[in-house]
Design a protein around this nucleic acid. Sequence first.
DNA 1: AATTTTTGCAACCGCATGACA
DNA 2: TTGTCATGCGGTTGCAAAAAT
Length: 127
Amino acid sequence: SPEEDDALRDYMQRHGNTGSWITLPNKAGEFARSLPLPCPAVPLIVLDGCLIVLVGLKRCGKSCRLRWLNYLRPDIRHGGFTDEEDTIIYSLYSQLGSKWSLIASQLERRTDNDVKNHWNTKLKKRL
DNA sequence: AATTTTTGCAACCGCATGACA
DNA sequence: TTGTCATGCGGTTGCAAAAAT
């Protein structure tokens, strides 16, 4: 949800991930709780006249890691692959095969997942 | 306008690797 | 050495949105 993204982004931008991904959901949850209300990272619900504050990230560390690295991380670009990038991807794929992490590392601010998706949905069928 | 089909892609799964005990 | 645990990686999929009918 947008609230979960806010909590994860807020925590990562202020602290970075110093410890393990496994323990991050609890830390990010506690961090969100410590912010002054109303804070967008802390979802609020009014039920039967009572204010309910949802705390913690109800996600496993693996999901948080993937969400941050492939999507929320600010220093990455999504979509809009240029012809130059396509050329590089074709070239590297012909040399390396589906080494998406390696191929992505040769492009500017691209994730392996995005390069893989771009290949599977666009480039592959042009061959 | 309503319904069906296709497409795009974020997220999931299982496995490999490496660190550490 | 063997076992455990966290992370990185690539194949695959669920499903919402877009396109087609």
